[in-house]
Simulated scan of single mutants.
Amino acid sequence: MTVELRSVVTCPHCGHQANELMPTDACQFFYECKGCGTRLKPLTGDCCVFCSYGSVPCPPIQAGSVDGRQAVGCCNSTLD
Rank of each mutant, 00 (worst) to 15 (best):
C74F: 02
H16I: 00
D80I: 11
T78Y: 00
D25M: 05
Q28W: 02
T44G: 09
T38C: 13
S7Y: 00
A26C: 14
E20F: 01
R39E: 13
L5R: 06
L40Q: 10
D80P: 15
T2N: 14
S52E: 08
F50D: 02
L5Y: 03
G68C: 08
P42L: 07
P60G: 08
Q62R: 09
G54T: 05
P42E: 15
A26S: 13
V72Y: 01
C27V: 05
P42G: 11
G45Y: 07
D25H: 07
L40E: 06
L5V: 05
A26W: 04
G73M: 08
P42D: 10
P42N: 13
P12W: 07
C14E: 05
Q17P: 01
G37T: 12
V9S: 01
V72H: 02
G35H: 06
G35L: 08
K34D: 14
C74S: 11
T24H: 06
N76Y: 15
C33S: 08
C75T: 08
Q62E: 13
S52H: 07
C14Q: 06
K41M: 15
C47H: 05
Y53A: 08
R69Y: 10
S65I: 10
G35N: 09
A71I: 00
T44A: 14
M1I: 03
G35R: 09
T38R: 15
G15P: 01
F30D: 10
C58S: 13
Q70T: 15
V9F: 02
Q62H: 13
V9D: 00
Q17I: 02
G35A: 10
L21T: 13
E20P: 01
T78H: 04
D25V: 05
M22Q: 02
P23H: 10
F29T: 12
E32G: 13
S55Y: 07
E32F: 03
F29V: 14
P57N: 12
A18K: 12
D46H: 11
A26D: 10
